[in-house]
Design a binder for these strands. Structure first.
Lengths: 207, 207
DNA sequence: AGCCACAATTAAACAGCGAATAATTCATAT
DNA sequence: ATATGAATTATTCGCTGTTTAATTGTGGCT
């Protein structure tokens, strides 16, 4: 009789979890260098020292793997952004968050754009664990807005969305298009934060 | 002797320009229904009633075709946005622009996200004619800001860029469903315009 | 020790892809 | 009428993601 309850020892030198980690690290390295379109199951497998079939024991398909890679990217950005000093004034915190964001994107632009270049087949929806990663990041911006709307978490989340999306728009446009090389994305983000926050104060006190 | 100066008549029933148009229309229909990942040379060719090889006489490669499809999309959005009444107040004009923009995106979300999902291979840069399409749209937002900064076109462009990038970010994130499913992008855009413009007035009059 | 059960891994196959090339078709200029 | 050369197709190549069957290897049991 075989023991069905404990996992049988692996044939090779790596546990399932190790393999999972190896695959994501391999994929991350490939996307960093060659972009999402340079990623393939065969390339990942070769980088790991395995064959493509093994990947299908760790992931449902390549979409699943990319989704988990993107979640990992979001996690790493989240960890980087958690370091900011949230005791400062909202505007200063948001500026620091934006700085971390842009620094992160700048060091691995292909890894970052993989998040937006990837799209799921029609049938599938985004898994909830992916949405949680996005929410984590948003909660940081929301946290920065806490002094502004201490009693309205919903409002806080809403404004955090707008600022986050604006940040994304600026960085992605600046990254993809060098038409306006006179425009510095850093200054644009600065404008966004300063003016939007000023507008928030005006419109809140007025209405 | 052959006449090198006048184009030889086509073998089939369509001129080169007609074929070019047919290819883009076919690609547009496919992307509308199946998304960018459902697009292939074989599918385009079959839709046109030709074979894949013909496409390579009209386009350098599939990337070129997708780029021209995206330019066409930007053109169609531009034509739609030109209809707004630019005699109104800046905030009203910007809101109308945003409305047209989001209505357009809403009717063909897959066509729109193709703009962001597509990325060129490392070697190539975006052609200038593509950047012009983006600039056209940008100039509409700049036009709306004319009453606010009548003597500072550079400032106008800067603020237009920030606003447009924000709109771009909100719609693309909402369209790709990489952000919240609960937040309504329309309300977010409303917030962006109202607060950013309010901030502009405050910060301009103050400093 | 020997063997069995079964998980892990691989090798092979399939359909489809973008792209390049050779072969073919066919409208026109002479 | 025929040769010319552009337009179109058929074929081929090396890829791709994914599935399947075959193989390998390991731990449990007698």
């Amino acid at each position: 009789m075989v023991n069905y309850y404990l996992p049988m020892a692996r044939r090779s030198d790596h546990t399932r979890q190790e393999l999972h980690q190896m695959a994501l690290k391999a994929a991350q390295a490939i996307v960093k260098r060659r972009g999402l379109r340079g990623l393939s199951t065969r390339r990942i497998a070769k980088t790991m020292g395995y064959t493509p079939g093994t990947l299908y024991q760790l992931f449902a398909d390549l979409d699943d793997l990319v989704l988990q890679l993107n979640a990992k990217t979001l996690d790493e950005l989240y960890e980087k952004c958690r370091e900011v000093d949230f005791s400062k004034r909202p505007e200063a915190v948001l500026r620091e968050l934006a700085d971390k964001y842009m620094e992160f994107v700048g060091t691995a632009p292909r890894l970052w754009s993989a998040i937006f270049e990837h799209s799921l087949p029609e049938k599938h929806n985004l898994p909830s664990w992916y949405g949680e990663r996005v929410h984590n990041l948003l909660s940081l911006a929301e946290k920065a807005l806490l002094p502004l709307f201490p009693a309205d978490p919903q409002r806080r989340l809403h404004e955090a969305y707008v600022l986050w999306a604006g940040l994304y728009g600026i960085t992605s446009l600046a990254g993809a298009e060098k038409l306006s090389e006179t425009e510095d994305p850093k200054i644009m983000v600065e404008s966004l934060i300063r003016n939007y926050l000023a507008g928030l104060r005006v419109n809140s006190s007025a209405g």
